[in-house]
């Protein structure tokens, strides 16, 4: 009985922790349904330098969809950025799949000279903070005259090595015997890759896709560095610019940005977990 109770009581701190972790999300979500006056009353001490302390209630006093309606119907600029973000993210995903999957397959399934070095290189590059690669990328984008275009954000991200690393782990997990059987059946390298590698490694591809999407949906430094034209900006650059007078709009926009990420996260949670877990698997 005591053991059971101990087991039950462990839930409490877990739920508390879960609450703390979820708080910012709930906070942002409740802001969407507040009216402007309530937001101003709550946030004025923080954003406008007013006296007193900021307050917050997770449940709005006078819930309204006004901010959301205003955002969705009266703010075409929001949609410009929303689609910019989506365009960048999807392009990056497509590019990563196109170039990353074969690379990962090659690294996982073939033995050739320099493979280990390439792997190490990929891991090192994967761990490089963006700021280290910012200058080289800037130089090459400048050379190709790609600065201030979406391609400037998309192309370097397409050749990011992190997805390769994730998918490599998945492809490593495919039993060699299946591939051997296929080869004996007379399948070429390409057929083996297309008909066996991709279907069996699809979980890895999806999970790396989800991770990639979350990452690219959240890009800030790259567009900030490479994009000057405001109309090319993704949503992530627009949100920090919102002040108190548009707080309602800001919360709504933040919420709308959160929604696709959460939807994708929820629908691909299992793949995501697999993808994450794959990284932890022993080589």
């Amino acid at each position: 009985m005591v053991k059971k109770f101990v087991r039950e009581i462990t839930y409490l701190p877990l739920i508390l922790l879960a609450g703390i972790i979820c708080f910012p999300v709930l906070f942002a979500a409740s802001g969407v349904f507040m009216q402007q006056w309530e937001l101003e009353r709550n946030l004025a001490p923080v954003l406008a330098g007013a006296e007193g302390m900021a307050g917050w209630s997770v449940l709005p006093h006078a819930p309204t969809l006004r901010s959301l309606v205003e955002l969705l119907l009266d703010s075409p600029q929001f949609f410009v950025m929303f689609w910019n973000s989506l365009k960048i993210s999807l392009c990056i995903l497509a590019g990563q799949t196109m170039f990353g999957v074969p690379s990962a397959w090659a690294l996982a399934r073939f033995r050739f000279p320099g493979r280990k070095a390439v792997l190490l290189l990929y891991i090192v590059l994967m761990l490089m903070p963006f700021q280290v690669l910012m200058l080289p990328q800037y130089l090459v984008l400048d050379r190709f005259r790609l600065l201030d275009t979406h391609a400037a954000v998309i192309l370097p991200a397409v050749f990011s090595t992190f997805p390769v690393f994730i998918m490599y782990r998945f492809f490593c997990g495919i039993p060699e015997s299946i591939l051997e059987a296929a080869r004996i059946d007379g399948a070429g390298h390409l057929q083996v890759f297309l008909w066996i590698g991709i279907p069996l490694g699809s979980a890895g591809i999806v999970s790396s896709g989800i991770l990639g999407f979350l990452e690219s949906w959240n890009l800030i430094e790259q567009p900030m560095t490479f994009l000057k034209t405001k109309s090319l900006w993704p949503l992530s650059l627009f949100l920090p610019e919102i002040g108190l007078e548009e707080a309602g709009l800001g919360f709504a926009a933040a919420f709308m940005m959160l929604v696709p990420a959460l939807l994708l996260f929820l629908s691909g949670r299992e793949y995501l977990e697999q993808g994450i877990a794959a990284a932890a698997l022993k080589e």
Binding site: P24, L214, S236, L239, L262
Partner: peptide, 10 residues
Amino acid sequence: AVPAASVVLV
């Protein structure tokens, strides 16, 4: 999954 920009205000 939460984009950093979404929770700046928070």
